[in-house]
């Protein structure tokens, strides 16, 4: 797959300075169009946030984005709307996401280092295997994995959600790091060898410090994808006090859904909030990550 489906490996060169949109009219038209798209795209999101600040009576009668009398009532209703407080669910999500970030970054960096920097027998074979798993849909392994974790007694714990990440199962990140490590001049490793470093010290003192961009990209995407993940927690977590925020939210739909949209929107807003904050903080990193690697979202 690396042959043809290669992400166009490019960052963003400076914007073309070509004054392509000659007339002011055409320029204005283009802006109007883009603003219209922006509005349509963001309107539901903003409306959700606005509605979370409204009393329930108002939600179904207002398409406006500005609540008349903003209140945080829905938030306190929602926060305690389940038999387990959302604080517990957020902590669960946070714990899982942080563990996944650590696991992914560590194990994928180690694998990528082995693939790019160490000469060992069988390297080419294993690398081909790794590439082969890049496009393997997880459905191919889902059921046996579930049965295995069930037999291990791991179902209804966070272990199935976290331990695999310490075993570099996200080949995509391995691949991403392989690409990055290849760009680090080999002479640096050799200089380190002359300075008396073994593979471990080269990894820790030379490769990792020089790879912060790719490590950060992997960390941020890992966090977001894990935070957002619904399928794996749905399968593996049974007790409500072990739920992630996503699972809790979906349970909340059942229990409160039809009656208390305000609380539901409040909790929806809160579950998206961490991602939104990461988006604000790492916008550049995320967008460049997508542009250069072709990540899907």
């Amino acid at each position: 797959m690396t042959e043809v489906v290669r992400a166009p490996a490019i960052a963003f060169p400076a914007a073309p300075s070509r004054a392509d949109i000659g007339s002011p009219w055409r320029r204005a038209f283009a802006y109007a169009l883009l603003l219209a798209v922006t509005f349509v795209l963001l309107y539901p999101l903003l409306w959700m946030v606005a509605s979370s600040l409204r009393p329930d009576s108002e939600i179904f009668h207002s398409t406006s984005l500005i609540p008349q009398a903003p209140t945080f009532d829905a938030y306190s209703r929602g926060w305690n709307g389940l038999s387990v407080g959302f604080s517990q669910l957020f902590l669960n999500s946070l714990l899982i996401s942080v563990l996944v970030v650590i696991g992914n970054v560590m194990s994928c960096a180690m694998a990528a280092y082995a693939f790019t920097r160490l000469r060992f027998r069988g390297r080419g074979f294993w690398f081909a295997m790794m590439l082969g798993t890049l496009m393997l849909p997880q459905h191919a392994v889902l059921i046996p994995q579930y049965i295995m974790f069930l037999k291990l007694g791991w179902v209804n714990t966070i272990l199935p959600l976290t331990i695999p990440k310490f075993l570099a199962v996200d080949a995509f990140f391995v691949f991403l790091m392989v690409q990055f490590f290849r760009g680090i001049p080999r002479e640096l490793d050799e200089a380190a060898v002359m300075d008396g470093c073994g593979p471990l010290r080269i990894f820790l003192k030379v490769i990792l410090p020089l790879s912060t961009p790719v490590l950060a990209t992997a960390a941020v995407f890992s966090f977001i994808w894990t935070w957002d993940d619904f399928f794996a927690p749905l399968i593996y977590l049974n007790d409500i006090e072990k739920y992630t925020a996503q699972l809790g939210l979906r349970t909340f739909v059942d229990s409160a859904g039809q009656s208390d949209w305000g609380a539901l929107f409040a909790m929806s807003t809160l579950t998206v909030l961490p991602i939104f904050i990461l988006f604000l903080m790492f916008q550049r990193l995320l967008i460049e990550g997508i542009a250069t690697t072709g990540m899907k979202r």
């Binding site: 002479e187 640096l188 200089a191």
Partner: peptide, 13 residues
């Protein structure tokens, strides 16, 4: 032995 590399290979960080 010490070696001076063509690209210098200074640790950038």
């Amino acid at each position: 032995i010490a070696m001076v590399f063509q690209s210098y290979a200074l640790y950038p960080h």
